[in-house]
């Protein structure tokens, strides 16, 4: 069975796409935040790999072709950015200062907590890109020589948390303006938070997707300064 499954490069793609479809279906059916398609797909895929004893490398021969699309997909984030250009222009200062403060806060809190947990350089650098979209986070972690897989884990935890709690947190913290809500959720929890912001409203969603791109760029610049601190 194991040898048979390992012979085709399509096995990884079938598992990935299939489990994601199951995840989408479950979310549609139950409409609960816990039924996050991404989370379901990842846990099911890991389960299937462990159950059938399929090696990750065998799985990745096919599945890596999906990851190749990350760069073009991130390039395409320029499209919503362009579409919301008017809204961006009108609130330009507020948005830019807001995102910049968020990015700086992210770097400072991670630096402080890395000191608190006594993390080494590699662990610290690994966690620095945790608030930005995975596409940029992965390449940034690679550039900084961090543990890419752990960066992805931190990004997923952050995103999932933002997706689940973003709306509630905004209410508790009295963030009411739709633009501010979008910026807060997007800056703190990237694409997965943006999915939630899209559900709250159009402006929130647009602002959130905008801040994915801007926060991504700003974090790249900020980490150049912050990477040498530990």
């Amino acid at each position: 069975m194991k040898e048979l499954l390992g012979t085709s490069i399509f096995i990884g793609l079938v598992i990935t796409l299939g489990t994601y479809l199951i995840g989408l279906h479950l979310r549609k059916k139950f409409n609960l935040f816990i039924f996050n398609p991404l989370l379901i797909a990842i846990s099911l895929t890991i389960g299937i790999l462990l159950l059938f004893g399929i090696d990750y490398n065998t799985y990745n021969i096919g599945a890596q072709h999906l990851s190749y699309l990350l760069t073009p997909a991130t390039v395409c984030l320029a499209i919503p950015l362009y579409e919301q250009f008017k809204l961006l222009k009108k609130n330009f200062t507020a948005i830019m200062v807001g995102i910049a403060s968020g990015v700086l806060t992210s770097c400072v809190t991670i630096f402080c907590m890395a000191l608190l947990f006594r993390l080494g350089h590699h662990e610290y650098v690994t966690l620095l890109p945790k608030s930005i979209t995975t596409a940029i986070g992965i390449s940034l972690s690679e550039e900084l020589h961090g543990y890419v897989a752990i960066t992805v884990a931190a990004i997923m935890i952050t995103g999932l948390f933002g997706n689940i709690a973003g709306d509630i947190l905004c209410r508790i913290l009295h963030i009411k303006h739709p633009v501010a809500k979008g910026i807060a959720i997007g800056t703190a929890s990237h694409v997965m938070g943006t999915a939630k912001a899209m559900e709250i409203g159009e402006i929130e969603g647009a602002m959130s997707s905008l801040s994915i791109a801007v926060a991504g760029c700003m974090t790249v610049i900020a980490t150049i300064g912050f990477e040498w601190l530990i």
Binding site: I95, V97, I110, M113, T158, L173, V179, A180, K181
Partner: peptide, 28 residues
């Protein structure tokens, strides 16, 4: 350092959300 990852991720997400949201809202 699994605990560190989870704690750092959750705490910094809340702080970043609060700061960026309030700064944006305040300026608007």
């Amino acid at each position: 350092f699994l605990v560190a990852i989870v704690v750092i991720s959750l705490v910094s997400t809340i702080i970043v959300l609060a700061v960026s949201g309030h700064v944006t809202q305040w300026i608007i």
